[in-house]
Design a protein around this nucleic acid. Sequence first.
DNA 1: CTAATATCTGCACGAATGTGAAGATATCAT
DNA 2: ATGATATCTTCACATTCGTGCAGATATTAG
Lengths: 128, 128
Amino acid sequence: MQILDESSTDQCVPPKVDRDRAATVAESLIDINVAGNLAEMFRLLADPTRVRILSALLEAGELCVCDIAEVVDTTETKVSQAMRLLRPAGVVRNRRDGRKIFYRLDDSHVRMLLELSHAHVTHLAEDV
Amino acid sequence: MQILDESSTDQCVPPKVDRDRAATVAESLIDINVAGNLAEMFRLLADPTRVRILSALLEAGELCVCDIAEVVDTTETKVSQAMRLLRPAGVVRNRRDGRKIFYRLDDSHVRMLLELSHAHVTHLAEDV
DNA sequence: CTAATATCTGCACGAATGTGAAGATATCAT
DNA sequence: ATGATATCTTCACATTCGTGCAGATATTAG
């Protein structure tokens, strides 16, 4: 891109052009609080059980806790604790019907994330 | 969608239609290994520093470690350790030029994830 | 060669996280 | 009322994770 210029004497021996680019990036960089929110959202998806639960909801649309536990092949406690994390984050929404509580995805972005991620992983699987 | 039917008596008092749906979901459900890979990929993004680093690379295209540290306002050790996680996962690629090592994003899906996620969070920020 | 720069690694410690067991609520059936 | 079902919560424990520090490696300059 640009020719390296070792004239300036700063802490990192930065070529002038790169310095400018770095400054520009710093301005348009994602806000530190936003980065925190993003990281927290990714953390919610950083667990195999939760991924499978969300995947099941993506397929079924709506499922009660016991059905989720059966489909995902895990305990109801795990499902319940997963929902405790996902609910206040706005990822899932619940609805009571008798003694059952039905959950469904409640975030179009998360839905897209899941679909995109699924495509990503299956694409990786093809390579390997 | 379908009318609830409390006739069958199974362990979870499941209406027949729901049982079928659960079975269908179980078949088309994401594989357990794939879910693990997905979760691991999300875990890489589940850290504010790493999110900011990737965001910087998304903006700048390519940056060396010291510039990343300056732009993201963190230590070079943090950047280096972040890269130690992101490199083997195929998220970033590096190139040596002299004593500097330049990093850039190396995964179109991750790029999309970041863009989509950024849109998601800014959308949330508008609501609140 | 030595000195300085840029990056990486190993280690140790505090914090956060996932998990299971046991008990607490809430709803329905009888 | 009692018992059964479905879900949630609390607690404690083991594991993992992010962090900083000190030192190691690699490259360039003199």
